[in-house]
Design a protein around this nucleic acid. Structure first.
Lengths: 182, 182
DNA sequence: GCTTCCATGTAATATGTTACATGATTAA
DNA sequence: TTAATCATGTAACATATTACATGGAAGC
């Protein structure tokens, strides 16, 4: 279980609300670890009980109040402890890839459509990451080293995916000329 | 939930035991979807109850008996149905990446060591995939199109990871010259 | 004698997802 | 007026992990 550690890493840089964290998980860090707001609120509750984070209430006008969480010394110690032990294997669940693997039974047209849609998302992500990387670079790569490296991973990942998508597109278009789909 | 669909895709090609499937999940398909033997046995049980797979007992000498599962017409229909609806978003849990993101608190030396170890694994995987791709290509890429594309994904993915690892290695080695680790 | 491979499974626990619930504000 | 953003949460359910259990054969 290292959702807690992912949260602690995010809180290292700045205090954040559960909602903020959910946004980060949906965007940048989402490439590496994902979690929904329900999980996050639950985990923040537990972390608070265990004194690894603390929070302060922030009333807002026009918006609901929020709780800004920050990491405590106990939390930092837990993070350090966790960083020392070898990371578990990466896990993935990529339903689209399962579809490609089972592509014989699928409709090539539908698969191509979905591919196009996913490619669009990936291109957008790539642009976001590239912009972020440049910003970090300008601010000083050394100071932001770990964030920079994380973003680089995102960039390389998107590019690899897009390159693969292009191969798939060509293969499927080629295939659907001779063989009628469905 | 599409562990069941991943299993059905694998059973499309050939009948297999739970043990065989677990091996495939640990290797080739593991890049795309992973599952442990406990999950697989459980899911095979359910799939059997729902008549999506059937099995035959195969007694063996010197080895425990096994159950060879094959996909049924109902199973194939279910797969086709599933292939039509859009795939859910890909999910990942990469603990090592979380570590890199939190790298400020980590020991660079330890991180580098772990990186080296993971790189080795990735290089081995890459070699396996490349050999597989070549074999499929020789046998006729058209016939093995979907397997071929799946393997290509694996190859591009490993390469992207290794390229990133190289960037990280250089950055960390550079960083640990000036700043003493720990 | 120890470990790995083969092969199957159960039970307890931990995690994650989906659905539901609330409620003001802002933009289309 | 419909939807989206902000912000937090509970409850029910589905999925996944860990630990445990068995047992012969093969290789070191």
């Amino acid at each position: 279980m290292s959702l807690r550690h992912a949260i602690l890493v995010l809180l290292q840089d700045q205090e954040a609300s559960g909602y903020d964290l959910a946004r980060e998980f949906a965007n940048s860090i989402g490439l590496v670890w994902n979690a929904t707001h329900q999980q996050i609120y639950l985990e923040l509750g537990k972390l608070n009980e265990q004194h690894m984070v603390s929070f302060r209430h922030v009333p807002q006008e026009g918006k609901p109040d929020k709780k800004l969480y920050s990491i405590t010394e106990d939390g930092r110690q837990e993070l350090i402890r966790w960083l020392k032990k070898p990371a578990g294997p990466a896990r993935i669940r990529d339903a689209f890839m399962v579809k490609v693997a089972g592509g014989q039974l699928a409709d090539s047209g539908a698969l191509l459509g979905e591919l196009e849609q996913l490619s669009k998302q990936r291109r957008e992500r790539l642009a976001t990451f590239e912009a972020l990387a440049q910003r970090l670079d300008e601010q000083g790569r050394e100071e932001n080293l770990y964030s920079y490296l994380t973003v680089r991973r995102g960039i390389l990942d998107q590019r690899a995916w897009l390159q693969w998508a292009e191969e798939v597109r060509q293969a499927l278009e080629h295939a659907s000329v001779g063989l009628p789909t469905s």
